[in-house]
Design a protein around this nucleic acid. Structure first.
Length: 472
RNA sequence: GGCGCUAUCGUCUAAUGGUUAGGACAGAGCCCUCUCAAGGCUUAAAUACGGGUUCGACUCCCGUUAGCGCUACCA
């Protein structure tokens, strides 16, 4: 039984890259009948915030992909320290009394990789114990066997065989001088303890995986299978980041704009993974059925957003697709938080706007005239039909008012009545409908006229037409 | 700088070494039509570059270039 985990650190809002990582883990678990674990990696006390914790839970709850077990790393410090101690006892780690580097260091300009701080590796145990006992602060570093010829190696489920020479891996820290575990240690200690079988995470960790392999080996734990995911990039070519790209990459931005969770999930899945059969629009169950690690590709994927347009066109299209395939009553329910109307009204409106909105929030602009008691002001020139003039508009509206007073107010009844009216006026049907549409909706582009009028009802329609006549 | 990873239309992607390099979104055009959509049809658009290997390379190998990641007592 596979056991997978999503391990966010609560240092910022949940962004779409993290959401995708969660989704892939969840999909893998569900496809294989495994266990999905949520673990909050909160060992960086200084950067943790409650707001981001809230954001993570809110985002995940919205996705609606539940997890089976939940942990918090800060509850597990004793485990981390005991693992560190065990590694130290085996002499696979040593105390480093060098003060922490401050700021961005010079080493990026150096000739090679920094491997360790001089003098600390070969400190005798006695010396080390003495200085520690004297209260001198130290970091605990992993003793990478630099002198050994050979490589750390593992096979990544996505990127294939990986190898890195011992000589190229620096003595990374396990424990900070304040005694807190580093990411590497806490991460591996927990993964081993929770018996994680597959680590599915962003490719930024591919290089870290060598260190992790070293830790797993040091504690005698079987190394989980690694599956690294290609990164999500911004159109500017940079890795997606909360810091530089802001709320456009926040999950809640998508939620608040009116994405359906499944559409959002669908979009994210297609970034870096393909079902290989040209399928694009997928239901949750289809995605679970189709998902495999083999379908994941290796190249980074760009999320095409801009400042003016925060959403990738494909995401929008997928959302529209999912909206269109919803039963109207369900769409009405989804619309409820976005529209100033009750469910009953929305049920009537939903079929009219279903194929006209890309985001749930579009209901406010597309169906505004259903909600407003009084139409917002519009230019009376709008009432003039194609190849017509103000006089024609007036004639049309007068006739419409007359006909509508008694017409059967159903789609077909209205269709018949208004077409008949256009015939009796000797004008084209379109010239008849246009002024009526503007009078009733307040603008030229709107959902189909008869269905709209049916929902609006006789009183509202007749009143609005009368008001339009006033304007002419 | 070192190490690692990657490279197919603008974007997401497909292609047991043999296809006219396919699909989708976005773009353009046409049709349908009471407007707007939706739908249908058409169109434009790609294998980063250079070498190999092979009868044959998007596919395998090498190099170049470019991008990304890691190189912290962040994760």
């Amino acid at each position: 039984m596979p056991r997978v985990r999503f391990a966010p650190s609560p240092t910022g809002f949940l962004h779409i890259g993290s959401a995708r990582t969660y989704i892939f883990n969840w999909l893998y678990a569900r496809h294989n009948g495994g266990t999905m674990i949520l673990r909050i990696d909160d060992t960086d006390v200084g950067r943790n915030t409650d707001a981001s914790l809230t954001s993570i839970f809110e985002g995940l709850r919205w996705l609606g992909l539940g997890w089976d077990e939940e942990y918090k790393q800060s509850d597990r410090l004793a485990l981390h320290r005991s693992v560190a101690q065990a590694i130290f006892e085996k002499d696979l780690a040593y105390r480093d009394f060098t003060a922490a580097q401050s700021g961005d260091s010079e080493k990026s300009g150096a000739q090679g990789t920094w491997l360790f701080n001089a003098g600390m590796r070969q400190l005798s145990r006695e010396q080390s114990d003495r200085r520690a006992a004297a209260g001198e602060p130290f970091a605990l570093r992993f003793r990478v066997p630099h002198d050994r010829i050979g490589h750390v190696q593992f096979s990544d489920a996505v990127y294939g065989d990986q190898a890195k020479a011992y000589a190229d891996i620096e003595d990374f820290a396990l424990l900070r001088s304040d005694g807190m575990p580093t990411y590497h240690l806490a991460n591996c200690a927990d993964d081993a303890d929770l018996r994680i079988t597959h680590i599915i995470r962003g490719q930024e960790h591919l290089s870290n995986a060598f260190k992790h392999k070293l830790i797993f080996d040091a504690v005698g734990a079987e190394s989980p299978t690694f599956a690294h995911l290609p990164l999500l990039m911004a159109p500017d070519g940079m890795k997606l980041s909360k810091r530089v790209h802001g709320p456009v990459v926040s999950v809640t931005t998508y939620r608040d704009a009116g994405f359906l969770p499944q559409a959002f999930i669908n979009f994210l899945c297609l970034l870096g993974w393909s079902p290989k059969n040209d399928r694009e629009k997928l239901s949750r169950q289809e995605t679970v059925d189709l998902f495999t690690l083999e379908g994941i590709n290796r190249a980074n994927a760009v999320v095409n957003f801009t400042e003016e347009d925060p959403f990738d066109a494909k995401a929008l299209w997928l959302n529209a697709e999912h909206i269109r395939s919803l039963p109207p009553n369900e769409l009405a329910r989804e619309l409820l938080p976005f529209a100033p109307a009750d469910l009953e009204t929305l049920r009537k409106i939903a079929p009219l706007i279903q194929e006209r909105i890309k985001l749930l929030r579009d209901v406010r602009s597309v169906a505004d005239f259903f909600f407003a008691g009084q139409l917002p002001p519009y230019d009376s020139a709008e009432l003039i039909p194609k190849k017509g003039d103000a006089a024609m508009a007036k004639t049309v509206l007068l006739k419409a008012r007359e006909v509508l007073a008694t017409a059967d107010f159903s789609h077909d009844g209205l269709d018949a009545a208004l077409r008949a009216a256009s015939v009796s006026l000797g004008i084209k049907a379109g010239q008849m409908f246009e002024p009526v549409r503007v009078a009733v909706c307040g603008r030229k582009t709107a959902p189909p006229l008869f269905g709209t009028m049916e929902v609006l009802g006789r009183d509202t329609c007749v009143t609005r037409i009368a008001q339009a006549i006033e304007k002419l």
